[in-house]
Amino acid sequence: MDILSRRGRERLIKYICLLLTVLAVVPLLWIIGEVVYNGVSAINLEFLTALPAPFGESGGGIGNAILGTLIINAMASLFGIPVGILTGMYLSEYDRTSRLGSAVRTVIESLSGVPSIIFGIFAYSLIVLTVRHYTAIAAAFALGLMMIPLIAKATEESMKIVSNDIREAAIALGVPKWVRTTKIVFSIAKGGILTGCLLAFARISGETAPLLFTSLFSFYWPIGIDQPMASLQVLIYNYAMSGFQNWVIKAWGASLLLVIIVVSINVIVRRFAKPKYKAGV
């Protein structure tokens, strides 16, 4: 094998990778571009703060849907993030081999593949049918359940790759296991766990199906978490299909806003959780 052909092959592989990367990125940028292009004209102060205008009238905003999405996502995160992290911690640090552990692991893995509508129907039959009205609690429950497998898996994997040498160092210092798990292994794995949480958050921010069964929609400001609540997702779904020009533009604006919310939460959280040390695991 002469050296030129090896270099040639090296370059070929590099350019194939580059080409495929471009193929992957172009549609993404396209979508974002389209959303920005169509949505930006809809955004103004009234759009952000006012209630929706009745069908057929121009003007109005989506303030209640923005607030609703924030409330529902916050409640879902409050439920899904702690449960997900503790489950992952259990699987990585307390139970790697037993039957219970592998059963939990299998359930987690299957749950992350379950279509979101199933979570919606589950929350619907469990909560909505019991209390006999649509409620944001059921929405947060469904979305929180969806977050758990994603976060648990990310936590388990991030903690598992922390070298055993580090655990032994803590053991040899006489540090109790729970301190070792929370203050050392968890702290080292934090970056990966955070990524998992943000991905889960982004995922639920785009889910519409579970919300149609649970929080449904409201044309008014949220008055209680046990009531139906407007959300950007359902608003986009309703408005985009309405065929009414004012609403279609608002659906584009709402889409843009959803993207902005997810991206800015991503940026803010990462800024605050910047690791002190860059050194590897």
């Binding site: 040498d165 032994e168 040899a172 210092l173 050392i184 040390y277």
Partner: peptide, 18 residues
Amino acid sequence: RRKIGMVFQKPNPFPNMS
């Protein structure tokens, strides 16, 4: 383990601490 300390083959400082 506090009274009997241990040092390992591979240096294992905690990477998340100064």
